[in-house]
Design a protein around this nucleic acid. Structure first.
Length: 408
DNA sequence: TCTGGGGTCCTAGGACCC
DNA sequence: TCTGGGGTCCTAGGACCC
């Protein structure tokens, strides 16, 4: 028999911001940006949630609901730092830890009984340690499956511990809304409601074959989930396996839509630099490059191209992206968002770029130097994008290593 | 209600191969 | 002359998660 903990930090981004500015404590706080900006709520304090504010809500809407809230920008570095602290606490507690996102983790508690005693006692011990070490609150769900542990940590919020005793899974799940099942979002919820299915119990009573016929592979997984089983999807892999990223992407939404080619291509160059940099950090070479384009009316297209050999070089990424952009952008149409994604890692020999080996080496050294400068002086220290407005073509021709030329 | 950014997984069709 | 059956790779879109 297995015992899993799901540890979920309470209002994580808000709580971290409160550590930096204690005057925020207890107040309605919205993390994500200023109330008049294009963007959505990343996190809302419990005081703000009372007004109906929740994450993913447009900032402007949040402002209408709760104008007295303090709106703060997000600080990803701070969250990464605290996420690491959280991980340290968890890893010291049990070696089998898997961070599921920046603010939540699964622990496999197999064989820890002698050390910590029964599950509830162990969870309270961990709960206290988390608070002492990080000054942050968390909620802990305990169950025989990861799925039920996750749902029970949600039910335990805020700042609580909840153990679903083995054998009680179905009884625990039955009265909950189907939306509580991870993987059931707006659309699936609507589809289930249309069939008269509102509670997890309604789902569990249904015939598996019916669900499969109606929802395909998903239906099968759904049938298992309604009974608390880790079947299908994300819950299949063992805890502790870290396989590295499958894709790396960056995107940008303009504060005002634009149809200015120079501006658009300069943004693409910057996004390519950011993607390239992360590829080099992970020592990955991407074979597939994807452009994402969103117009003013929010209609969105993606266009991808795969090459035989992978790349991690800004300019090679940019050449692919620029071609995709030029052949797919409805010329003159105002653009809301641009995105660049790299995926399909090449391995071994395939990692050699299209360039000759020697030039390739020089390029890598140049980029490594640029990466170091960025570490020191920030993202804008060195830029291909900044040099673009003057005409990228000419520049690349006469100076293939044009990258390090510009300093701001 | 005028809708971020970074990810994962699934589906489905077409190309291509044997 | 009435139309195989896999398998794999690529591409596009969409649901979902935090």
């Amino acid at each position: 028999m297995r015992t899993y903990f799901h540890v979920d930090m309470d209002a994580f981004f808000v709580s971290v911001e409160e550590l930096y500015d204690p005057s925020l404590r207890g107040k309605p706080v919205v993390v994500g940006g200023r109330p008049d900006e294009r963007g959505v709520v990343s996190a809302a304090s419990y005081a703000a949630r009372k007004f109906g504010v929740h994450s993913a809500m447009p900032l402007r809407t949040a402002y209408k609901l709760c104008p007295q809230a303090t709106f703060v920008d997000g600080h990803p570095e701070r969250y990464r730092e605290y996420s690491h602290k959280v991980y340290e606490v968890l890893h010291a507690f049990s070696p089998l830890v898997e961070m599921a996102s920046i603010d939540e983790a699964y622990l496999d508690m197999a064989g820890t009984e002698r050390l910590y005693g029964p599950p509830l006692r162990a969870a309270h011990l961990l709960h206290n340690r988390m608070k002492e070490s990080t000054r942050l609150n968390c909620s802990i769900g305990i169950a025989q499956s990861r799925l039920v542990a996750k749902i029970s940590s949600d039910q335990a919020k805020p700042n609580g511990v909840l153990w679903v005793i083995p054998g009680q899974e179905s009884a625990f799940l039955a009265p909950l809304d189907v939306r509580k099942v991870p993987g059931v979002g707006k659309v699936t919820e609507r589809n289930l409601h249309a069939l008269g299915i509102r509670k997890v119990g309604d789902l569990a009573r249904l015939d598996e074959a019916f669900l499969e016929q109606r929802f395909g592979k998903w239906g099968m997984a759904l049938a298992g989930k309604s009974r608390g089983l880790d079947a299908g999807g994300w819950f299949d892999t063992e805890i502790g396996e870290d396989e590295g990223p499958k894709s790396i992407s960056h995107e940008h939404t303009y504060s005002e839509d634009t149809a200015d080619v120079a501006q658009l291509e300069s943004t693409l160059a910057r996004l390519c630099e950011m993607v390239g940099r992360r590829l080099r950090e992970h020592n990955l070479h991407a074979r597939t490059i994807q452009l994402k384009l969103r117009y003013s009316d929010f209609s969105t297209i993606t266009r991808a191209h795969s090459v035989a050999r992978g790349t991690q070089l800004d300019t090679e990424l940019f050449e692919e992206i620029r071609d995709l952009f030029r052949s797919n952008w409805k010329s003159g149409a105002a653009v809301r968002l641009l995105g660049v994604q790299a995926s399909g890692w090449a391995e071994g020999d395939e990692q050699l770029s299209l360039m000759g080996e020697e030039r390739h080496e020089r390029w890598k050294q140049t980029l490594a130097a640029a990466d170091r400068l960025r570490d020191k002086f920030g993202e804008s220290a060195v830029s291909l994008a900044a040099s673009l407005r003057g005409g990228f073509r000419e520049r690349t021709h006469e100076n293939p290593a044009g990258l390090p030329g510009k300093k701001k």
